[in-house]
Structure formats: structure tokens, C-alpha cells
């Protein structure tokens, strides 16, 4: 059964593009911490009468104290270790649907693909349309379809990177499922989380969806070319976002016109240097 949505079968599927083959089956790892067991009803006495009755049920209290998302968190750390060892900058791009994540990636790959190796993992409930757009630009890409699932998990990314085999000194973009709520809880092993918001959305989104803005390090404000036609207060958006996360950085961009994209590329270069170990 799918652990994401409970549907039958694998739940999510992986589609490789170009020269990439289907992955071999990847056995999940079992991670267990020490549980402290406290026996409540130990059998301490023996008497002939006891042999005539069925054994009393035993009751055991296991003081687990384990994070509910322990398995995902450990797999995410494993992904993170892989990225760090290979000097790969992994970024988790999150946003509501339609903010322009794929367009931003297309532009980035087109502008910088000649001087930087990029890899892309695309997450969507259905279709390989986004991966097709990315593949058209020449970057290696794997599409994860989550089925009914609303977010990517570390294990899905692990399978995708087994498929992608990203080279050292590269940048891996993980485009999460368009959803400002669910992906916030699931660490994928990324170095940074980048939340994308477009100016056609409300300025108060950071207050309405605080978890995502709290857990991100960079906020890309996209579609700034549309500002003249909208009543959108950029400073109000930044102020709301800073209330949730005072450390959040902002870059204003337009993936359509290219405005502000140089600042984004400089940020990428800086982060790629920082990830070096």
C-alpha cells in the first residue's frame, strides 16, 4: 500500500527521460531506535491452579519517544549526506500551483546551462508535462508522479537520484508538488528550501500558510513583470513573511522577462560554494 495516500500499488511512479533507465528495486532501510520496555504484568508466581487456566494476556508499555516522521527524517539525512559528499547543491522548490516554478527552472537552465551542470526532479500528482518541458531544455530530469499524494518524501527523492545519478559539483532542483501546506513537514535532504510566490497571489499568504514560509530560507517573488497591472504591495508581502521568518531572504524575479534573474544566479553560485566541504 502506498504510504503517502493509501492507494493500492506503489502509489507514486517514476518516469525517466532520455538516456535514463528504470531504477532497480530499492529496498527501504529499517531504522529502529531503542525502546524502553516496562513490563506491567510479569508472571511471578506458579501454582497448580495456574496450569488449568489460559495464560493471562500480558500488557507491555513501550516508551517509544520517537519522532513520527523519524524514517523520513533519517532518509532525508542520508540524501543530504550523499549531496554533501558529492558537492551537490540540492534545492527544494515549494509553492502553490501556478506560481511559475517550472518556468523559473526553464529560464535558469537556458541562461546558465552552459556554465553549470543542473539536474531536476519534478514532482506532480499526474503527467510528465513538467519533465518534458525541462528535458526539452537539455537537462537530465526524472518525473515523480505522486498519484493522490500531496507532497514529495525523502524516499521518493532517493529513488529519483538513484535514477538521475547526478554528477559532482552540480545543482539539483527538486520541484515539489504545488502545495503550500503539506510539503513543509517533509525534509527531502535539501540544503535550502526555496518558496516561490507570484505577485498574482495575495500579499498575506505568508500569514495564511506560515509553516512553509517559516521553513524556507529564500523567497523568490515571481512574475514581477505583471506588477503594473496589479494592486500588489511587495513591501507588505515581505513584512508579512518576515513576521513568520525574520531570516528569510527575498529575490524579485520575472522568469518571463528575465528581470532579477541575475540576482538569483548569484545566490545559486554563492550557495553552491557554501555547500563545498
Amino acid at each position: 500500500m502506498c504510504t503517502t495516500c493509501g492507494c493500492s500499488g506503489n502509489g507514486h511512479k517514476l518516469t525517466a527521460f532520455a538516456a535514463f533507465k528504470k531504477p532497480a528495486s530499492t529496498a527501504g532501510i529499517t531504522l529502529e531506535g531503542p525502546g524502553v520496555m516496562v513490563e506491567e504484568t510479569p508472571v511471578t508466581n506458579y501454582s497448580p491452579a495456574a496450569t488449568l487456566t489460559a495464560p493471562a494476556p500480558t500488557k507491555t508499555v513501550v516508551e517509544l519517544e520517537r519522532d513520527i516522521l523519524d524514517k523520513n527524517n533519517r532518509l532525508a539525512e542520508r540524501n543530504r549526506g550523499f549531496f554533501e559528499a558529492r558537492n551537490i547543491l540540492a534545492l527544494n522548490l515549494v509553492s502553490s500551483p501556478g506560481s511559475g516554478k517550472t518556468a523559473l527552472l526553464e529560464r535558469t537552465l537556458a541562461d546558465r546551462g552552459d556554465r553549470q551542470r543542473f539536474y531536476v526532479v519534478e514532482g506532480d500528482q499526474q503527467t510528465a508535462r513538467d519533465a518534458e518541458r525541462i528535458a526539452a531544455g537539455g537537462a537530465p530530469v526524472v518525473q515523480i508522479n505522486t498519484g493522490k499524494g500531496c507532497h514529495l518524501e525523502a524516499e521518493m527523492v532517493r529513488q529519483a537520484i538513484l535514477e538521475l545519478k547526478p554528477a559532482s559539483d552540480s545543482i539539483l532542483f527538486i520541484e515539489n508538488v504545488g502545495n503550500l501546506v503539506c510539503p513543509s513537514l517533509f525534509d527531502l535532504g535539501e540544503a535550502c528550501r526555496v518558496v516561490v510566490i507570484s505577485v498574482t497571489e495575495g500579499e498575506d499568504k505568508p500569514l495564511k500558510y506560515p509553516d512553509m514560509f517559516r521553513s524556507s530560507q529564500l523567497c523568490l517573488i515571481n512574475k514581477t513583470d505583471l506588477l503594473p497591472y496589479l494592486k500588489f504591495d511587495l513591501e507588505a508581502l515581505k513584512n508579512y513573511a518576515r513576521q513568520v521568518n525574520p531570516a528569510l531572504e527575498f529575490i524579485e524575479v520575472s522568469a518571463t522577462t528575465g528581470a532579477g534573474m541575475e540576482t538569483w544566479y548569484e545566490w545559486l553560485e554563492r550557495k553552491a560554494r557554501e555547500v563545498c566541504i
Binding site: P55, V61, E65, D67
Partner: peptide
């Protein structure tokens, strides 16, 4: 976001320790 504890009942104990 944690599982604190589980109380598990076993109808037929895997190991029954009888002490005379």
C-alpha cells in the same frame, strides 16, 4: 511530532516465565 508510547497486549505471551 512524536509517538510517546504504545501499550501492547499479547494474548499468548511469546515467553512465559514461571517461577516456582
Amino acid at each position: 511530532l512524536r509517538i510517546k508510547s504504545l501499550t501492547i497486549t499479547c494474548a499468548q505471551p511469546a515467553v512465559a516465565v514461571a517461577t516456582d
